[in-house]
Design a protein around this nucleic acid. Structure first.
Lengths: 150, 150
DNA sequence: CTTGAAAGTCGGTCGAC
DNA sequence: GTCGACCGACTTTCAAG
């Protein structure tokens, strides 16, 4: 990864549909050179995938909740079964095992508070080994990006 | 958004590079029909952008910290200046204004603990109006997706 | 919605430097 | 590493049913 590669992934993180021609102009390279660099980055797994991002509000997922979860126990069985079950939940886009006062932080996207209540009662609290949950509601999204400064 | 559109955005959220031909086979539609549907979804802003995702570890951003922040005051000036400054920080990919015991939750990606210490001292704690911070460190990534079930 | 055809562009491979 | 040229595959638009 030289300086050109860093610029390149910078552009692709913002717009994956940029053509090699457009990129070649921005980077002052030939299209082939850009092409080879992109393929190298894909081969090495630095670029892992290309995805479409949706407008959360327009698909009724504008209500975000961050939920802190404690397990009752912390043995391997509790942890693995909890993790296996939580990844299945469509409303949960992120789940991190963390240090501190609780064990997991999960990020939930639903339509509104009513949908969240429904999610809590029918899905989250039915998970095994859960000790306690603490919900933090999003009031406003200040920043939410997928692109790293590299 | 009918059932076909939902399937379509489902595919595109997983792989933005899928050709209209591939999609037409999966959806049992003509290439033209798929093309028109995608353009409509883009026009309506349901599909907001196409991006490349990177492997965090391979670009030295494998160390994630979630930081809870309290401001000293909660007037408009404190809030807006804090928000303006925090969005400028490259290490901060997400920042949410939240309800509860603290005001903001921010997600920070850096290389390691040393880099986080550096970030804390030289960037985060120099922000104006910050009252207190509480860092939660990621031990493991159980789930981290960008695609909604729609 | 469909098919088919057209035009232009792009991705991907090549040989050469 | 770089480049220009090539060709097949793609996107995009159109007409007609």
């Amino acid at each position: 990864m030289d300086a050109i590669d860093k610029k390149l992934v910078g552009y692709l993180q913002l717009d994956a549909k940029k053509t090699t021609k457009e990129l070649s102009l921005k980077l002052n390279l030939s299209v082939t050179a850009v092409y080879e660099r992109i393929k190298k980055l894909e081969r090495e797994g630095i670029i892992s995938k290309y995805v479409a991002l949706l407008d959360k509000k327009k698909i009724d997922k504008g209500f975000m909740v961050i939920c802190h979860i404690k397990l009752v126990q912390h043995n391997v069985d509790s942890v693995t079964t909890f993790e296996k079950e939580v990844v299945k939940l469509d409303e949960v886009l992120e789940c991190f095992h963390v240090s501190g006062d609780y064990d997991y932080i999960i990020k939930i996207y639903v339509k509104d508070m009513e949908a969240y209540r429904e999610f809590m009662l029918t899905k989250l609290t039915t998970l095994q080994h859960i000790g306690s949950t603490h919900s933090v509601f999003m009031i406003g999204e200040v920043k939410n990006e997928t692109n790293f400064k590299v």
